[in-house]
Design a protein around this nucleic acid. Structure first.
Lengths: 192, 192
DNA sequence: GCTTTCGCATACCAACGGTATGCGAAAAGG
DNA sequence: CCTTTTCGCATACCGTTGGTATGCGAAAGC
């Protein structure tokens, strides 16, 4: 195996196991020794690839955010109508964020480890950007009333984040449908 | 000074300094030595009053949540009309959560340190309970459409939490007013 | 006034994140 | 080919942290 291949493989393995452990036990509860043991390397390898534990988490978070962003974007893009794109994207986000592993990394530990500012930058780059874009288009098209976009983006983003967290712990089988219905009612209220 | 008084005084001082430091630097970045140095005691005193670092954070969080809950409740109770109570309570929550210190403890570190489940229990006991109560009354009174309350509670709670976090970093002086306006529009949409 | 209680200090430990250095194989150069 | 350099990673080590076990001295009970 070439040196570049070996390097890439080790890096991937570190990211894979870190993600698994961070999701299962949380950032604070996972030691670096746990990670390197699971991968079968030593801390030397870890610090050769990442500056510190926070950088490792950053890489894992970027990966998770990217996945969620992709799912939201592809689902939304499948709809021809801008309004349907918007609603479909919101629903796709709820569905994608249903995974407890994704939640722990993206919604729980993310803000605490990186601080809210940096976490926001990640979220903006991955999924909230689509929300802003959609709202902008809908306002330009006159589908919803002209109004400041940023407050609305954060209200909706927060609503969906918290709803996703709640859904993960809810035992009610109809909870997802009820939440989507309530969210849809709120979204509908934005239409002119 | 009696022994009970001394005990109480030490405990209060520990809570006060912990809250200050947790708010300023975050749970993870604050060491127990920092806290006991700031108070002028030793770790022996700290561990005499609290089981561990997490229990100390729990006590601080309970205090913060209680304060916010009180502010929301008193503001809401000042309004005679149930609908006005509801809107006033939501606005009061936004205002109370504007403090970055409260945010760091209540919204950022809270879920990460305690896990979402335990954090939710705290939030439920302090402020989200008022939201649930208000929504229940409004539905019973026929002011808003009959619908499942839990999903709506979490959507609104999450919207306000995230909006509060955003407001703290926003430089736009009109951001608070814009957010309250957008929130009010969403709330209005719930009316029958 | 004698004993008990208890609030807190002292001294210590294991584990953790992080660093400095060494090694051996793959790549580069001639 | 053989030499030299590169570099991916291992080894060994350090300071700090959360947490514990024990000791002490003053207040509280009898």
């Amino acid at each position: 195996m070439s040196r570049a291949e070996q390097r890439e493989q080790t890096r991937r393995a570190l990211l894979r196991e870190s993600r698994r452990l961070f999701a299962a036990e949380g950032y604070g509860a996972v030691g670096l020794s746990q990670i390197v043991n699971a991968v079968g390397v030593t801390k030397g390898a870890l610090y050769h690839h990442f500056d510190d534990k926070m950088a490792l988490f950053r890489a894992v978070l970027a990966q998770v955010q990217d996945e969620v962003g992709r799912r939201v974007a592809t689902t939304a893009d499948a709809e021809p109508d801008p309004w349907d794109q918007f609603v479909a994207g919101c629903h796709a986000f709820l569905t994608a964020s249903a995974d407890p592993d994704i939640q722990r990394i993206m919604l729980i530990d993310g803000p605490a480890v990186l601080g809210w500012n940096e976490w926001r930058a990640f979220d903006e780059a991955a999924s909230a950007r689509h929300l802003t874009d959609a709202l902008t288009r809908l306002i330009e098209a006159g589908v919803i009333a002209r109004q400041p976009i940023a407050p609305l983006t954060h209200l909706l983003s927060g609503a969906m984040n918290e709803a996703a967290l709640w859904l993960a712990t809810s035992t009610d089988p109809g909870a997802l449908a009820d939440t989507k219905a309530a969210l849809t009612r709120i979204l509908e209220s934005l239409r002119t």
